[in-house]
Structure formats: structure tokens, C-alpha cells
Design a protein around this nucleic acid. Sequence first.
DNA 1: GTGAAAGCGCTAACAT
DNA 2: ATGTTAGCGCTTTCAC
Lengths: 343, 343
Amino acid sequence: MDKKPSLRSIAQQAGVSTTLVSYVLNGKMQNRIKPEVARRVREIAERQNYSPNQIARSLKTNKTFTIGLIVADISNPFSSEMARIIEDRADLAGYTVIYGSCDERPEKFQKLIDVFLDRRVDGLIIIACDGVLPQIQYLLSRDIPFVLVDRYFPEVASNYVALDNFQASYMGANHLLDHGHNRIGMITLDTELFHMRERTRGFVTALSEFDPNPEQSIVRLKDGFCPQDIEQAFDVLLKRELPVSAVYLTTNKLGMQALKYIHSRKIKVPQELAVVSFDETEFLDLFATPVTQIKQPLQEMGEHAVRILVESMGGSSSFTQVNLQPLLAVRGSSIMTGTIGVI
Amino acid sequence: MDKKPSLRSIAQQAGVSTTLVSYVLNGKMQNRIKPEVARRVREIAERQNYSPNQIARSLKTNKTFTIGLIVADISNPFSSEMARIIEDRADLAGYTVIYGSCDERPEKFQKLIDVFLDRRVDGLIIIACDGVLPQIQYLLSRDIPFVLVDRYFPEVASNYVALDNFQASYMGANHLLDHGHNRIGMITLDTELFHMRERTRGFVTALSEFDPNPEQSIVRLKDGFCPQDIEQAFDVLLKRELPVSAVYLTTNKLGMQALKYIHSRKIKVPQELAVVSFDETEFLDLFATPVTQIKQPLQEMGEHAVRILVESMGGSSSFTQVNLQPLLAVRGSSIMTGTIGVI
DNA sequence: GTGAAAGCGCTAACAT
DNA sequence: ATGTTAGCGCTTTCAC
């Protein structure tokens, strides 16, 4: 690797001081520098193919123009799509993204926080997982700018961008109720995360008018569930005195796996079982009967996240909290006839 | 943000020099340092919750322990899955990944290279796109360690990890030939990239025994093709004197979109049309008839890539080139009866 | 208008 | 066994 050009190498060749070169190349002190000199410096920098050493600059300025992104599970399309959007917007704002997936494990989360802070990121965008409240509080205590995306902790004041998950579930359940289903099952994850609790609450609230005991129709699976777990869940909902006529899946992975199961058992959708799934994924459009989905406005969420973080890194001391509304994309899986479209 | 602890703050509190603290915390000069002092230093570091400033360390050592990852198109599951694997393996090797997607555009690629080099990454892992040969040559001339993944330039000597794409297509086409198809269409991308040329060559080679003019059955679409393009492609293949009885899709996106089309037209698979697609994606398992796929060993590719890069960053001067063999996962879309399984 | 010099936090060659 | 010192490449204050 040949020696990289530096301020010094340019200064030497131009016969000026590094200070001057720094000023010229950063466009500072424009009014005081002889245009003739400025031109010469720029030309030499160009010829040497100079680009500043960001490491040195960072050490001096205490700014790295780097954002750390922690996602809960990169193998989830929600995360990878969000990562793409965030990288894009960060780039526009002049930031580079370093990222990692905590795989829903607090220890890995902690490790990523440590690595990112050692690298002096200017701020963090976080899709949190169960059990990371202490780390979040640590970040707050250290005054490190961050934004939570999708998942947040209502008991903690912080920046966040999230969906109105209660409303989302409420809307999904009501959609099924409106179409004549009143025995509706829900398969969800066994987690303490607030956004999932809200999804449950929305479902329960919608159903409680018709169903004295909606809890009976909720099956909770551990994250990392396997096909057998899905099968058992369906057994609970379908093999009882009053089987459900519709099922609501609260995450895209649950939706995927449930549909695979339904497909393998040749259960007719929506005739024998109506289906609504949370999250948007191209997958769900591919089944013989495309699946009605509750969509999150990903692009918007990512844009907000970066914008809020940039403001926060700029010194804004107040917290910004954004709650976005979901979209219900009605497909064939939840209605027997009639219009199909997006509400 | 409260003052971060530094070597100096520890040194002061311990009443020793920063050098000593540095040695202790880096486990150097173990034999020469009084254990008693070492213990004290460690304890104080612990109490101050010290963690070293990697920026400063990097400036000094000229090592950032950062890898730049450039993917061609992050919205492609191939890229995002690969990114996950690489991040994972890099982490094991003590490296952090910064990443960006060039969205198949050389200008964006150039920009990412610049950003990553300014940040002094120790090396790069690259899923290249059309038209970046000059940048690759620039990296070579600068002696910057990098590994090409999936796509490489045969006319340039460099590290790479790739699939044997010729063999993959050859195998896919032969599979269809073996099952009684001899009018086989191929829909592919219009690109100069070597790996795609190889996919074409494998197809043509396999077919040429049976088909005097296999080129007639190849349709090339521009990257970023739309549903209409897919429709036209199928028109070419299906609406002619001798329509094809099977179609081979050379990328996962083409596979996806083609299947969507086939599905919408209610074309029966495999009775009316047999289908084989390149790349593995869960999508393709979801159709009424799951789709036969040519699988790339992603995990292995990612592992090789990181390993080769680490070796290369360690100073190895020779190039390592890895060609991996594909796997044909036979599903219902390509055979009328008989065994279904993975060859 | 321009330059000298200090210093960001760390490492390492060179004292002692 | 430990400390002194120089310096990585840059920014910025202060002096001329």
C-alpha cells in the first residue's frame, strides 16, 4: 500500500503550512486566504488524489459521522428492509452505518453496544429485544443519542418511532369480525415486549364484545418456534368443540409458517379458515389465495428514525416520539367475495 | 455526555504512567510488570468502566478492525443473507462491518469505496456490479485487501469466492432434459457480468445436443425489469410455433416474478410448464407446486470470504480463488412424478 | 493572510 | 519493572 497523501504532503509540495491546507480543503476562512494560494493547494490535493483521514479527524473533533444500527434479527425481512432504508437516509445525511444483529439476545445486544461505543458512533438506531431495558437506561444516563424503532419501552422516556400496534390489531380483528367471523384465533409470540402486548390488547379489545373469553383463543409460541409448535397451535384452535373460523398471526414469521402449515394440510382459505397476518411480505402474496396483511409504513419509519437521530445528535435535548398508523391490505384470505383492495 | 475514562485518568488514579496502563490492559510485557500493580490498574480500569478509544488506537496502529461490505442490491435476499453471514463471521474474527448497497450502479459503488477508504477499513468484501472493473483495478493497484463474492472478473487476478455458475446452469438444464423436456426457455438478465455469462453458457452447452439453436429460447431482460417485461418474455417463449415446455429462470428475482406471472395466468406447473429457478429462497417453496431450485452454499461462501479477507489483511500476498459447487433441490415444479429430494 | 504549536487518546521505541 | 517521549493526521487557537 503506497503512502497515502496527507495534509503534510500537500503542504510540503505547496510550500505552505498544514493549517492553510486544512482551511482551504475545509472551505474555512475563505475570505482571508489568497485565492491564488487556495487554487494551488486544491490543485495539488487533486493531483495527489488526497482524501482526508477520517480517523484522525474523528479523534480531533470527537465526531465520527457514524451511526450504529442494532437490529433484533437480521434474517427477518422487516429488519433487512429497515436496514436498507436507514442506510440510504443516513448516507443522505452524511453518515455511515455500522450494524449488527443481536439475534433477540440481550448479551449480544450488550456486546454490540460496547463495540459501537468503543468506535465512538455518534448515535444509535435500535430495534430492541426482550431484556435490554438496562442497556437502554445506560445509554440514557450516558446521554448517548439513540432512537428506538418498532419496539420501545413505555416506562422509559426516549426517542422512538413505532407503529400504533394496538390500533393495528384492533383493525385486523375488526376486519374479520365485520366479515362474519366471531370465533377468531390468534397465534402470537410469548414475549414481554410492549409492541407485542399492544398487539394482543388490540385483538382482545376488538373481540371482547363478541367473545366473553378471548384469551382462550390466543396461543403463544416461544420465539424460535418450529413447525411442530405451529402444528400444535393450530390443533388448539381447530380441534376443539367450537373451532375458530379465522386466525390472526401477529408477526410475519408466524404468518409465513402458519401459511406453510395451512398449505400443507390443504386447508381451504378463506372457505375453511380466514387468515390475516401482521407485517407486509412479498411471501404472503404468493399463496393460492394471497393473504390479507397489516402493513407497517417502513419507509416512513426509517426516515423518521434517521431524522430524529440526526436532530438528537445535533444537540436537541427533548425526546421525539412518533406513532404511525398501519394500513390494512385486504386480500382474498379474509373475505369470501366482494372488493379486494387496500383500505 | 460525561467525560469518558482514558488511559490517563486511570494512570493518574493509579499513580503510574499511561504506558504501564496500556501494557497492562493490552496484556503486553506480562512478565515484567509487578502483578500487584497490574491488579491495581485493572481494578481501577474496571471501576472507571474503561473501554479504549478505538479511534485513537486506530490512528496509532493504522488498523481499524473494520471491514467494508459492498453489496450489489441489499433488497435481494441473496445480499441480505450474505450480509448476515459475513457480519457474523467478521465478528468472530474481531472485525466490525460497515456496509452499503451500490444498487447495481457504478457511481454509487465508487462512492462507497471512497467512504470506506476514508474510514480506513482494513479490507473489503464486494458483491460487484456491472461496470466496476476500473474500481477493482484501483484497489489492486493500491494493494487494498478485498474479496469478490459471487461475481468476479476472470480477466483480473484477485481473491474471489464464487459458484461454478456454468455447472449450475448445466445441471439445471440437464435436469429438465432428463425429464423429457427438449424445448426449454431461459429468461435471464441482460448483463456483461461474468457469472451471468457463465449461467448462459451452461444452459447453451447442455441444450446444444438437442437444440440446434438454443439462443432462440433465451430472453434477456434489463435489470429492474417490470411485470410487463416478464409477460413479454413469456409471450416470446410460449406464443410461437413450438412453445417451450419448460422454463429456466437465472436469478431469484426472475424466479419470483415469473412464478407470480405463471400463477396469475393459472398455468399449471409442471403439467403445462416445468420450472427451474436459480437461487434459493423461501418464496419458491410456497407456491401450490414448490419450485425446483439451484442452491448456492451461502454459509460456506460467506465463511470463505471472511477467512480469505482476514488472511489477506494479515499480509498474504497471493490470491485465493474458490469455486463452489451448486446444489439442485428438486421440487414438484420440474417433474411429473417420482422422487422429490435434494441431489 | 499565514504559520507555529498544542493536543485528541493511544502505542511503542527507547530510556532508566 | 516503569517512565519519558515522540508521533499517528488532523483541527484550531493564538500569534505574527
